Amino acid sequence: MKAVHRLVVPALAVLLLTGCGSSTSLPQTQAGDPQQQPDFALLADIPIPSGATMDNERSLILGDKDRWTGRVVMKLWKSAPEATAFYQQQMPAFGWEPIMAATSGISVMSYVRADRAATVQVESGSMWGATVRVTVAQRAGPSSTNSSATVPYAPAPVMSPAPVLMSPVYSEPSTKR
């Protein structure tokens, strides 16, 4: 029995470790923290909770520093309500202005910062913790900073009402003489 136990425990450990191959541990960042490790410099402008791991298969990061565009998918040990509260507190501390939040089973929060927009989606994980998706892209609209670097913004055209066509009015000739 002891021999079987000695074989089963290491085999389970190997299986658990192999399942973690598609994620990367992320260093924690919060407002006021020193600069992140160079490996994660692309994520310097968003908060990362302690213990977060990035899902490499579902994440896409294009660009560098605080000009990246894409989606970062993270697994957290925090519950969904804790993760939502973390992002509601920390995104403004990173300079992101909140513009919308809908919190429920799946929480969605939107933020703007200069000429960029970010959406944070938080949902309960299938087995533990929460899954967080942070999507950042060029903002489609006017910017308070360098307007030559932004996407041109034109408001939707105002449609005037269609002209009302009236049928001509004819008078019947009078039959009185």
Rank of each mutant, 00 (worst) to 15 (best):
T103N: 08
R71M: 12
S126H: 14
Y111I: 00
S104P: 03
V108L: 09
Q138G: 00
E57P: 00
E82A: 15
A52S: 02
Q28H: 15
Q90P: 01
Q121V: 07
T24E: 14
E57L: 10
A137N: 13
A41N: 04
P47K: 05
L60M: 15
V151N: 10
Q28E: 15
G105N: 02
T18I: 09
P49V: 06
V151G: 03
N56W: 07
Q30D: 02
A114D: 04
K78F: 08
T150M: 13
P47T: 03
Q30H: 10
P92M: 02
M100N: 13
W68N: 05
A93R: 09
P27W: 13
W68V: 08
T84E: 03
V134Y: 10
Y111L: 00
V132P: 06
T131I: 10
P161K: 12
P142D: 11
L60R: 14
S23W: 04
S79H: 04
G21I: 11
Q89I: 08
S147L: 15
Q28F: 14
M100D: 08
L42P: 07
S50N: 11
S23Q: 14
W68Y: 09
S50I: 06
A85V: 04
D64K: 15
M109G: 06
W68E: 01
G129H: 04
M54R: 00
D39G: 07
Q89V: 12
Q36H: 09
S50W: 06
A80G: 03
A93P: 01
V132K: 04
W68S: 01
V136H: 09
M91L: 05
L60S: 10
V151R: 13
R133F: 12
Y153H: 12
P38Y: 09
D39F: 05
R71S: 09
E97G: 04
V134P: 02
V136S: 07
V151T: 11
D39S: 09
A85Q: 07
P47A: 07
G21P: 02
A137L: 11
V112Y: 00
E97A: 09
A140Q: 13
A114L: 08
L26I: 00
P152V: 07
D115I: 04
Q88N: 06
P142I: 07
P49Q: 03
D115L: 05
M159E: 04
I99H: 07
A114M: 09
R113P: 05
A137P: 12
E97P: 05
Q138M: 13
G51M: 01
E82D: 05
F40T: 13
F86H: 03
G21H: 11
M100C: 12
M127E: 14
D55A: 05
T24Y: 08
A149C: 07
Q138W: 02
R113F: 03
S25T: 06
W68I: 08
P34G: 11
A118G: 06
P81D: 09
K75G: 12
Q36I: 15
G129S: 00
R116K: 06
